[in-house]
Design a protein around this nucleic acid. Structure first.
Length: 314
DNA sequence: TAAATTTGACCCCA
DNA sequence: TGGGGTCAAATTTA
């Protein structure tokens, strides 16, 4: 609310100065843009949910923006206090398992974004420490994206990466940044569309509970098999990014209420395709897919809404 | 010298 | 109250 009130005040000032000093207007517009982006970032990351006592202890329970804001006074960060609330897996968060380049186990595959490490912790029950990263542009652009990286206990060449929030900084992955802007490849789009539409999920007999090994039953299958050369460019078009993926999955069932199992099918399907999209977007050599063979290795159902899906592309 | 990382301390939820 | 997440000063790196 504070940020948005500040935006309103800036817009008022901009209105007053329109037709006057162009430099001042430009500066006001830039500030409006920055504060708006920050607000979006705060809402997306639920930083607005800072409890009153946190705010009080930080001395920010009174309006934080100046009562007479100066158009050249810059944007205050004092009320953008971090939320130390324990992060649970939320809708929109993405958990992926990645390997280190060359399989050496040094560091996980670069995901294309620039991150700044801000902490690491020993995690109870895990052999490896968890590292915490935030977007490099958090301070300058209010980007709220964060990620956690932890080496897998069972395989030191693999890393579990959990992404929280989305990038509002407009960063592009190197793969996307190195090429000319967007001319989507219709062939690749239709390839992916057919891939997603042909994905079938058989969850018969599946019940919530501990980790289950589905590798023998192979509940996911693609039919017919897909062939082609999939690269970040021909999948999403030059200059496109993961977030502009052309994939749109139709709900497995119609209507707004559906049974838990159908909901599971829908979400599992979405998860699997997201993982595939992410895999194909990695800034790595083109991945040739012949006679695509996607098998589900393990599927973990934490409750009725959170799924941990590991897939291997053979 | 600025930017990035490390690390002990702190905050606060489960 | 323990432990996960974050802060921020100290340290390292480019």
């Amino acid at each position: 609310m504070t940020e948005l009130s500040y935006v309103k005040e800036l817009v008022k000032q901009l209105d007053v100065h329109l037709g006057g000093c162009p430099d001042l207007c430009k500066d006001l517009a830039a500030q409006i843009s920055t504060v708006t982006e920050k607000s979006i970032g705060m809402i997306r990351s639920r930083h607005f949910d800072v409890r009153k006592r946190s705010a009080a202890s930080a001395g920010i329970d009174s309006p934080a923006f100046p009562s007479t804001p100066s158009p050249l006074g810059g944007v205050s960060n004092m009320h953008f206090k971090a939320n130390k609330k324990r992060k649970m897996m939320e809708k929109g968060d993405r958990r992926v398992r990645v390997s280190s380049p060359g399989g050496g186990g040094g560091a996980p595959e670069d995901d294309g974004y620039s991150w700044r490490k801000y902490g690491q912790k020993e995690i109870l029950g895990s052999q490896n420490r968890r590292a915490y990263y935030r977007c490099t542009h958090q301070k300058t652009q209010g980007c709220a994206a964060t990620k956690q990286v932890q080496r897998a206990d069972e395989d030191p060449t693999l890393f579990d990466v959990t992404y929280h929030g989305t990038h509002t900084c407009g960063q592009q992955t190197p793969a996307a940044a190195n090429v000319q802007p967007a001319t989507p490849n219709p062939d690749a789009s239709s390839l992916l569309q057919s891939l997603s539409s042909s994905l079938t999920v058989d969850t018969e007999g599946l019940t919530p509970g501990p980790r289950q090994d589905w590798s023998r039953t192979t509940p996911f299958s693609f039919s017919p098999a897909v062939s082609g050369l999939l690269t970040p460019e021909n999948c999403f078009g030059q200059g496109a990014s993961i977030s502009s993926s052309p994939l749109e999955l139709s709900p497995a069932t119609s209507g707004s209420s559906y049974s838990p199992m159908n909901r599971f099918e829908e979400e599992a399907q979405s998860e699997l395709v997201s993982a595939l999209v992410a895999a194909m977007s990695m800034p790595q050599p083109a991945m040739e897919v012949e006679d695509a063979n996607f098998s589900l290795d393990e599927l973990e159902l934490f409750d009725d809404s959170i799924f941990d899906v590991s897939i291997f592309l053979a």
